[in-house]
Structure formats: structure tokens, C-alpha cells
Design a protein around this nucleic acid. Structure first.
Length: 493
RNA sequence: GGCAUCUUGGCCGAGUGGUUAGGCAGAGGUCUGCAAAACCUUGUACAGCGGUUCGAAUCCGCUAGAUGCCUCCA
């Protein structure tokens, strides 16, 4: 019996603007596509937040027993910088600046991207396809759209005819716009354009002589348009119609809108049942921006080497911080917020570690089964991790009460509590148990146990100068002693 | 300028038409040689102005602000 048969998920669908019961196309299987990074610079922290949210969703779906094919692309062909003819491929530009090969830039930042995700304990996607590896599929897609009459060629470039498409379909249904408004609000472009209408977007762009990244096509040498790769790769690996498509809120328009149009024009069906969008990350209440300097990259955040934060924060603290807000809310990264999360995170981990030492009792004062279902209910409600965490803290409180003999659980309930806590904290939220990792060093633990014993001797001898010296100097190096009824334990921060 | 989303107690951050979110910080207490940790107790918030309703912070409208997209930045 798979868990997903008991647990009914509801997801917020950007397309309908409301929560809907999640029903995969093929029972027990989920196809999920998430727009990946453009690898022309170090991965943006906001991008990491988006992927972190979908990593959590991927983890939960897997936990429920779904067979998930999770596809997250690598955009290595670069996006057009603008739709004008002088539009330049981002990767080409950067490469020229640095005097190296485009694919060298791509390689460097792809490696960096994977390093960052590893540090944050991401699960790798099932398939991580590259745009440059799917040029043929993209050309075929352009042909289909042209054959169906929704694209036209001008001077070696091919454009999607948005107005023609809008005659029979609604261009703008995802982002809640309509074409008339777009027409009225489009600013006059200075440059000359081959496009019939400003709303049209490129499917294929002719490469100018200096353009390094280029491929032969029926329309001459060129490169694929901005939105094409996601349609080509999502349908190749997940089918013409699949379950979940995710990405950052900023991609809703025009990127995802164009994906829908391309798919409908090429395949005659809307590609996705559930569109999910993760909200933006802010830094101190402001949007992150390279131009204003209000930005911090993942390495700087983790090392503490930045001007925004008082200290370094561990990857799990950042994950925990992220999970304390909904993926659909704007998340404001602040020093106070991270510090509060860090303390809460350590309290939760301490409780989970303490659970290992608890002994079962003859009866339970707490309904673990009911609590467990509340955890699932939280996740089933559009992956509500803040509520889940509230329930995890309820368990932490219970564990501390059991330690103080103010509550009790049977061995069976203890096992269930432990299993559930581990499932949600580590498997679903992807947290790492730092305390356990550190104390796993047996030699260090042994040394600390000895110091605890010496301190206890000193206390019995009323040599408080000595006992306090041991306590305080251990605290100074980040080892905290905790005196309880049944002896002293410690945690390493 | 247009469209969209959001605005919650000292801070962060959920949620609901009438019942406790949770975390951090603060206060009091238990424990302790003193502390720390842990536990117990404690705060009655929902931008402003109107409206719908027996009742709204939760629904509707307007105003203000923030954010996103429309324009290179995830």
C-alpha cells in the first residue's frame, strides 16, 4: 500500500488561481518539470530558493511513494537579451568579455551550480537536460509550429504569431492578461524589428557573423529562441501533457505563457495540469539586485563573508528558514530572521537527538498517530511546511517533557514518533543533523565525557571555581553542557 | 502608466467568516551551588476607510504602501 493512496494532496494551481486536488495523469507516477538556471554566472540565491522549494516538493512526492520523474534543465545556450535584431546571446557576450570559449563558461558555472546544490543537500533531478543538447528537437518543434500556421520566417529568424494564436486560444491565461491590454501597453520600440507585432516572440534567431554559438537550421545558421528549450525538453521527457511545471514567479510571463502557446500551437494541447510558482526572495526588505549592490550569493551567505549578516549560517539553517515560510510567499532574508531560525533549528535537532535516549513507558500521554496525520495534513495542503514545522516543535516539546518525566510514550509510540520525525525533518525537508554529525566523532565525545566527569567531581568537592571554568571554557569553544536530573549532556554548536 | 499578488502582535511567519498557529525576543515561576538548557505560565495582532453579514482580520469596494511582470537583472 503506497502512502499516496491515503494522503490526498491539494496544490495551488497558478492557472486556476486556487487550490486543486492533485491527481496525476498516470496513477502513482508524477512528471515534474522545473525551469533551471542559466549558467552564465554564479547561481543566484533567489534561484536557489526556488529550487529548494521544488526539492522539498520532489522529496515529499517521493516520500508518498510516487514514482517521480523530475526534469530540471540547464540553460547553456543563453537567452536572447532582447527581441530586437541586435539581440545578443548572454553566454556569447560573457565569453567575449572574458576571452574564453562559451562552453567553458557554461562548464564552470554548471560545476558551481552543482556544488552549491550539493552543499544545500539537494536531491539530484531524474534528468538534467541541456539546451545545447536538444537543438534538433527544438528545430523540429519550430517546424511543427510553422506547419500549423502559428509562426512565420523573416530574414532567417522565425517568430511566433501571437495574434494568430490568440484568435483561437487565449494568450495570457496563465498570467491573467489579455492581448488587447498587452498591445496598448507595449512601448514603441526604437530599433527595427522583423516581427509583425511587438508581442510576437522569437522561436529561432539568425546568428550574426560574430555570434559564436550557432547551429545550422532550415532557416540558416542561428540559435533557438528564449522559450523554446523548455517546451522541447519537457515534452520529450514527460510527454505532450504532464503533471507539474514549476519555476520562479518571475517566469510566469512571458516565459511560461509562451511555453503554453508553443505547446498548444505544436501539439494542440495545453502542456501542464498544475502550474506552480515559487515566490521571490528579498534581502532586507528589498529586491536583490546586482546594480544596487543589494545582493549576496550563496557562497557569501554560507561563509559569512558579506556585509549583510553578522555571521555564517549553515546550509540546514537556511533550508529551515526557507521552510518556515510558504513557498508562495515572498521571503525576506534578514540577519534577525536567520538567527531566530538558527536557534529554533538547533532546538529541534537537540530534541531529535534526545529522543534516542528515551525509554518506553507502560502508557502514552500523547496521541502520536493523530499527530503524525496532522503532519501529513499540513504537507497535503499545498506543501505547507510552516505548519509542518509547528507540529515538529510540538513533538520537540513532548520529547523534552518525557525527559523531565512529565509525559510518557510506549516503546511502540516512541518508535513511531522517531520514524515520523526523521521522515519529515530529513527526508522531506532535507535538513541535516549537524549536532549528530559533530558528536559522531567518538574521540571528541569521549574527551567531553571526561571533562563532564571531572566537573562533576569538582562540584561534589564544592570546587565551583574549577567546575565553572570547565563549563565556561567549553562554552567558549561552542560546546554547551546541559545539566539535567539524570546527569549532564552536551551539544556542539 | 497597465496588469497581478501581498500588507498579521517587539521581530519573523501560518491560518480561518464566530474556537490556541509556530519560532525568536520579553516577563514571572520550577530546576540549579550560581547559571545555562529544559519545562510551566504569560502577551489577544491582523495597513486605512467604507460596505455585505447576526457576526469579518477572514467576503466586496476604494485609498495607501510593498513586491512581481510588462523592459537587462532569478
Amino acid at each position: 500500500m503506497q502512502l499516496y493512496k491515503d494522503q490526498q494532496i491539494h496544490v495551488f494551481n497558478s492557472l486556476s488561481g486556487q487550490k486543486e486536488r492533485f491527481q496525476p495523469i498516470v496513477e502513482g507516477h508524477v512528471g515534474m518539470y522545473v525551469c533551471g538556471p542559466t549558467v552564465y554566472s554564479n547561481v543566484h540565491l533567489g534561484n536557489v530558493r526556488t529550487f529548494m522549494s521544488f526539492d522539498m516538493i520532489f522529496r515529499y512526492l517521493k516520500h508518498l511513494g510516487f514514482k517521480v520523474r523530475y526534469v530540471r534543465n540547464i540553460t547553456d545556450a543563453g537567452h536572447l537579451e532582447n527581441d530586437a535584431d541586435e539581440g545578443e546571446d548572454k553566454i556569447t557576450k560573457k565569453a567575449r568579455l572574458e576571452k574564453i570559449e562559451p562552453m567553458e563558461v557554461v562548464q564552470r558555472y554548471t560545476v558551481d551550480f552543482h556544488n552549491v546544490l550539493d552543499i544545500f543537500n539537494f536531491l539530484p533531478p531524474s534528468i538534467e537536460p541541456t539546451a545545447t543538447g536538444h537543438i534538433i528537437e527544438q528545430i523540429e518543434l519550430v517546424k511543427s509550429i510553422m506547419d500549423n500556421g502559428f509562426a512565420y520566417e523573416v530574414n532567417g529568424s522565425v517568430y511566433f504569431d501571437v495574434h494568430k494564436f490568440n484568435e483561437t486560444e487565449h494568450y495570457g491565461k496563465l498570467s491573467k492578461r489579455n492581448l488587447e491590454d498587452l498591445v496598448h501597453n507595449t512601448r514603441a520600440l526604437d530599433g527595427q524589428s522583423d516581427k509583425k507585432n511587438p508581442q510576437d516572440f522569437a522561436l529561432w534567431k539568425r546568428a550574426e557573423a560574430q555570434h559564436i554559438m550557432r547551429w545550422p537550421s532550415p532557416w540558416g545558421d542561428g540559435f533557438p529562441g528564449w522559450h523554446l528549450e523548455c517546451t522541447a525538453m519537457s515534452t520529450k521527457y514527460l510527454g505532450d501533457k504532464f503533471d507539474i511545471h514549476g519555476g520562479g514567479m518571475d517566469l510566469k510571463f512571458p516565459h511560461h505563457e509562451c511555453e503554453i502557446a508553443q505547446n498548444e500551437a505544436a501539439k494542440g494541447c495545453s502542456p501542464v495540469n498544475y502550474w506552480m510558482h515559487a515566490n521571490m526572495l528579498q534581502l532586507n526588505g528589498q529586491r536583490m539586485s546586482k546594480t544596487t549592490g543589494n545582493t549576496v550569493n550563496p557562497h557569501e551567505l554560507l561563509s559569512g563573508d558579506n556585509k549583510f549578516f553578522s555571521k555564517a549560517y549553515s546550509p540546514s539553517v537556511i533550508r529551515f528558514f526557507n521552510a518556515q515560510s510558504s513557498y508562495r510567499s515572498v521571503l525576506d532574508l534578514t540577519d534577525n530572521g536567520l538567527q531566530a531560525s538558527e536557534k529554533g533549528f538547533h532546538r529541534l535537532m537537540d530534541a531529535i537527538n534526545l529522543l534516542e535516549e528515551l525509554k518506553g513507558d507502560s502508557s502514552s500521554t500523547f496521541n502520536v498517530q493523530e499527530w503524525k496525520q496532522k503532519c501529513y495534513d499540513a504537507m497535503n495542503d499545498d506543501f505547507n511546511t510552516p505548519i509542518l514545522i509547528a507540529h515538529l516543535f510540538e513533538a520537540a516539546k513532548l520529547i523534552n517533557q518525557i525527559k523531565d518525566n512529565k509525559a510518557s510514550l510506549t516503546s511502540e509510540d516512541l518508535g513511531l514518533l522517531k520514524q515520523t520525525l526523521h521522515d519529515f525533518s530529513f527526508d522531506v525537508l532535507g535538513l541535516m543533523n549537524i549536532t549528530e554529525m559533530n558528536t559522531g566523532a567518538d574521540k571528541l565525545s569521549g574527551a567531553i565525557e571526561l571533562l563532564i566527569e571531572l566537573r562533576q567531581q569538582a562540584r561534589l568537592n564544592k570546587d565551583f571555581a574549577m567546575s565553572d571554568k570547565i563549563r565556561d571554557e567549553l562554552a567558549a569553544v561552542g560546546i554547551q553542557l546541559k545539566d539535567g536530573k539524570d546527569g549532564t549532556t552536551f551539544t556542539i554548536n
